[in-house]
Computed example of a mutant assay.
Amino acid sequence: MEIITSILAGLLFATGVYNLLQKQLLRIVIGTGLLSHGAHLFILTMGELKRGQPPVLKEGITEYSDPLPQALILTSIVISFGVTSLLLVLAYRTANENNTDNMEQLRGTENE
Rank of each mutant, 00 (worst) to 15 (best):
E2D: 09
E2P: 05
I4A: 15
T5L: 08
S6H: 10
I7W: 08
L11F: 12
L12I: 01
L12R: 01
F13K: 07
T15P: 11
N19G: 04
N19E: 12
Q22W: 04
K23S: 13
L26A: 14
L26N: 13
V29F: 01
T32W: 14
G33D: 01
G33T: 00
L35I: 07
L35S: 05
S36I: 00
S36P: 00
S36H: 04
A39E: 05
H40A: 09
F42A: 13
L44H: 03
T45W: 07
R51S: 12
P54A: 14
T62V: 14
E63A: 09
Y64A: 08
Y64M: 15
P67Y: 05
P67V: 04
L68I: 15
I73G: 02
I73A: 07
T75S: 14
T75C: 07
I77R: 06
I77C: 10
V78A: 11
V78F: 07
V78Q: 05
I79M: 12
L86S: 11
L86K: 07
L86R: 08
L87C: 03
A91S: 14
R93I: 05
E97A: 14
M103S: 11
Q105D: 14
L106V: 03
G108N: 04
G108S: 01
T109I: 08
E112W: 12
